[in-house]
């Protein structure tokens, strides 16, 4: 049953029809969650004792940084799927995610530096977490430039998958950089294993904003993957019926 579903879902045609049905639910629910937690976080959360109002950028910065790594993990999973099972859809997803990942990483970097001015007194510091996120940003750009330099799409997909998998070694380094080196950037406040070190009045909108932002970015990925499918399957007859 599940196997059959996965097999069907892996074909671009079924994916396109299924995702169109699900798209509006994902979009509106995540838009609602994100706006709701933004309003909660911006208007109804008390001021931070030390940072004042400037901490409220957390509702953009944390979801963006969280997603910048998650999107790379998603790309790595898609690469492994593509190289092992030769699922075409996975290859489309890799190149669909890459520009969005670059964008989200850029949001994380810029919002972080805006936050840095009032709290650290500097907008940029060569600290482990910031530098490794910058490396991630450069890696996203490199992935895009590798893919665009080949006219043969299938070859480009395979080479891109290898690069994504090899580049995956950087993700644990970014994730753990704040724990391994003593740096300016604080270590993670929310972990799966420990109790969060944030007050619940700030934590709940934060969790809501992470979920909402996640959903919105997934919507972007869906749109971008649709573009990829239409671009790459343009010779297929089913696409004519779809369009």
């Amino acid at each position: 049953m599940i196997k059959k579903f996965i097999h069907q879902f892996a074909s671009p045609k079924t994916y396109l029809y299924q995702i169109n049905r699900a798209y509006k639910y994902i979009f509106y629910s995540s838009l609602f969650i994100y706006t709701f937690s933004l309003i909660w976080g911006l208007l109804f959360t008390p001021e931070d004792f030390v940072q004042g109002n400037s901490f409220r950028i957390i509702y953009l910065h944390v979801p963006a940084s969280f997603l910048s790594q998650s999107l790379y993990v998603a790309m790595a999973i898609a690469s492994v799927t593509y190289l092992i099972w030769r699922v075409k859809l996975a290859a489309y997803l890799i190149i669909a995610i890459a520009p969005i990942g670059a964008m989200v990483t850029f949001i994380a970097l810029s919002s972080g530096s805006i936050w840095g001015i009032p709290t650290w007194g500097t907008w940029w510091q060569w600290d482990a977490r910031i530098t490794s996120t910058l490396i991630l940003f450069i890696m996203y750009l490199g992935l895009i430039s590798l893919h665009t330099s080949f006219s043969n799409h299938e070859k480009a997909d395979k080479l891109l998958s290898w690069l994504v998998i090899v580049g995956f070694v950087n993700i644990p380094i970014i994730k753990k950089s704040v724990d391994w080196w003593s740096t300016l950037h604080q270590s993670a406040s929310i972990t799966l294993t420990d109790r969060p070190s944030i007050d619940p009045s700030m934590l709940y909108p934060l969790i809501g904003s992470i979920i909402g932002f996640f959903g919105l970015i997934i919507c972007l990925v869906i749109i971008s993957s649709k573009v990829q499918i239409i671009k790459r399957e343009s010779t297929k007859s089913w696409l004519k019926d779809y369009v």
Partner: peptide
């Protein structure tokens, strides 16, 4: 191009 792409991997 390839060298530039793999440069970020050497940064750690």
């Amino acid at each position: 191009l390839g060298a530039l792409i793999t440069m970020p991997l050497a940064l750690p």
